[in-house]
């Protein structure tokens, strides 16, 4: 059941040629977590702000649970927002911050105290109610911001780059916490990020945005394994990009090699995207639909995964091999054969 619906949402900023958000439409089911993923300036934050009511769309409509909220001011939308900088009220304690939304909604004092305690407990900050924001660590501030947004039981939870101010270790921990809390409460959530790992790890649905438009709206697996556009393929994950020519449907010529692909344009010049984990070293004598002789030019060791940069007749390739395997011992200058399934090649017209 659709909970959030955006229809042709558009926002132009005065003095800029292209719209910041250019006719975005999407449906988000109840309880789902949507990640708006894209580089800076792609319109993802503007989209989030329009949903929150902090920015007025020039065109289009926003519906929440079947109700049109497009013209409602932010204070009447019942949405919880976690800002990138958290925007905690510095003059109020953690409890005061969390209570703020309840108070504004006229929740009775006694009830309020309980709900504040519950919200702080939900994010694991039971003992910190009396602390001022500046007496809390970054991660704790982030949790207070989340508790504050969730305490009034919003129709929609909106998170704007909520992890970007945290260090790498903490980021993963808080990311999992946010996801856990969101799933426990079943709050429909929109999450803005430029970090594909975050998006893929947390979201039920990912909308990859570029120049104010949605390039692909799909599950994380779909976005990663089957990028719909060239932009998505380059922005999400790593890939070797090979210039190619379509010989016939399903058959491509890349450099001096010929490759089979499940889907290709009917003819003409094309680009082939191959994810590193789709390239597998082939043992001697093993045949494959696409088998390419290659030579290692560079080896990058990152622990459990070793990345091999190789030259092949088709062009430069990136392959990931698990540590501890035979292929993991290869050094620059060593030769090998790499195989890839026709279904794993993504081919876009060039």
């Amino acid at each position: 059941m659709t909970h959030l619906r955006l229809e042709r949402l558009t926002r132009r900023f005065p003095g800029t040629a292209a719209p910041a958000v250019d006719g975005i439409s999407l449906d988000l089911p109840q309880g789902a977590l949507l990640a708006l993923l894209g580089p800076s300036g792609c319109g993802k934050t503007t989209t989030l702000r329009m949903i929150a009511g902090l920015e007025v769309p020039d065109e289009g409509r926003i519906q929440v649970a079947g109700r049109d909220v497009t013209s409602l001011p932010p204070h009447r939308r019942n949405m919880g927002v976690v800002f990138q900088s958290y925007a905690l009220f510095p003059h109020l304690s953690a409890a005061g911050n969390v209570a703020f939304g309840l108070e504004m909604r006229g929740v009775a004092r006694a009830d309020r105290a309980k709900r504040v305690a519950d919200a702080l407990a939900l994010v694991g900050l039971e003992g910190f109610a009396a602390r001022k924001p500046r007496q809390l660590s970054g991660g704790q501030q982030q949790r207070v911001a989340l508790a504050r947004a969730l305490a009034p039981q919003p129709d929609l939870l909106l998170l704007d780059e909520p992890l970007s101010a945290l260090d790498a270790k903490l980021r993963e921990e808080v990311r999992d916490e946010i996801r856990a809390v969101q799933q426990r409460l079943g709050t429909t959530t929109v999450f803005v990020t430029h970090d594909q790992t975050e998006a893929l790890a947390m979201a039920d649905l990912v909308a990859v945005m570029h120049q104010g438009r949605i390039e692909q709206l799909a599950t994380p697996e779909e976005v990663f394994e089957r990028p719909a556009t060239r932009f998505v393929a380059t922005f999400v994950g790593r890939a070797a990009i090979l210039a190619a020519e379509v010989v016939s449907p399903g058959l491509l010529r890349a450099g001096e090699a010929t490759l089979q692909a499940a889907e290709t344009p009917p003819s003409g010049r094309a680009e082939i995207f191959i994810r590193p984990h789709h390239l597998r070293p082939l043992a001697d004598g093993v045949e494959a639909a696409n088998a390419l002789p290659a030579r290692v030019t560079r080896r990058t060791y990152t622990g459990d995964i070793i990345t091999l940069e190789c030259d092949s007749p088709a062009g430069r390739l990136l392959a990931e091999v698990p540590g501890g395997t035979q292929a993991a011992l290869l050094r620059p200058g060593d030769a090998l054969r790499l195989g890839v399934e026709p279904g794993d090649l993504r081919v876009f017209p060039a």
Binding site: A52, G53, L54, P73, P74, H75, R76, R77, N78, M79, G80, V81, F83, S85, A87, L88, F89, P90, F100, G101, M104, R105, R148, A149, P152, L158
Partner: peptide, 17 residues
């Protein structure tokens, strides 16, 4: 920080509050 006022608005506070 004007985000603080925005945050208050998203939490249900009118302009005067």
């Amino acid at each position: 920080d004007s985000r603080l006022e925005e945050a208050a608005a998203t939490l249900g506070a009118t302009r005067s509050r």
